[in-house]
């Protein structure tokens, strides 16, 4: 697996880690203008760290669902092209705005990812959807947002088992999410994100033609 252009491994005080170039956002370590992309704090970071074939090359147009305070999406904007960040909780969005201040290609949107019609007048068709919404109905969110992906588009999703069902065995939850997702997407690769994120499944998928 090759890293996208704009993502490199750098040494941070004796520890080698993924890094991107941009203004620091969450107190991460820096090496010159490279800032550490901490896989423990980012599911996409963990997917890259696990060697999943994300297909990311750098410069992609991205729709990011569940941007929260901007930890991961700030890295995505560092190596990506136009990056649309959707988050529906106002509190973290204050920090997302700070992260977007220095990133001209990062467009913050206070919107509900279950209502794509409320941002389809702003978001253009994208190369990649990154999804990390950690809420019940994660497969449905991916299905609803499929309209933003072209035929060659990629869905990079992190599925949190406990968001679907706290009591169920994560393996069962992942099975049913995979199955539900398969109606709209062809799953290319799935992998558990342990040890970085317990009971999370990373998914790389492409939209089925309809």
């Amino acid at each position: 697996m090759t890293l996208p252009t704009g993502v490199e491994r750098h040494d941070f005080g004796g520890e080698t880690s993924l890094a991107t170039q941009g203004q620091p956002v969450y107190g991460e370590r820096t090496d010159g203008d490279w800032r550490r992309w901490d896989p423990h704090r980012s599911k996409l970071g963990a997917m890259l760290e696990q060697g999943m074939e994300t297909g990311l090359e750098g410069g992609e147009t991205v729709l990011y669902l569940g941007a929260a305070a901007g930890t991961t999406v700030s890295h995505v904007a560092d190596f990506g092209g136009p990056t649309y960040a959707v988050e529906f909780a106002p509190r973290p969005v204050r920090e997302l705005l700070d992260a977007a201040e220095s990133r001209q290609n990062l467009f913050p949107l206070l919107k509900d990812a279950r209502k794509p019609g409320s941002y389809a007048h702003v978001v253009e068709p994208v190369d990649v959807i990154v999804q990390d919404v950690a809420t019940r109905g994660q497969a449905r969110v991916a299905a609803l947002n499929k309209r933003f992906l072209g035929d060659d588009g990629r869905l990079l999703a992190a599925i949190k088992a406990r968001s679907e069902d706290v009591t169920a065995d994560p393996a069962d939850v992942f099975d049913s999410v995979r199955e539900e997702l398969s109606a709209e997407y062809e799953l290319l690769e799935t992998a558990r994100l342990d040890p970085y994120h317990e009971d999370h499944l990373g998914i790389v998928a492409r939209p089925r033609e309809d």
Binding site: P82, P90, V93, L97, E101, L106, F107, P108, L109
Partner: peptide, 21 residues
Amino acid sequence: YYHRLHDVTMAATSAAVAEQE
């Protein structure tokens, strides 16, 4: 276009945050 989009999404989102809070 992207320059304008950045300005206007920043403004709209900070206004929406303020309003919702």
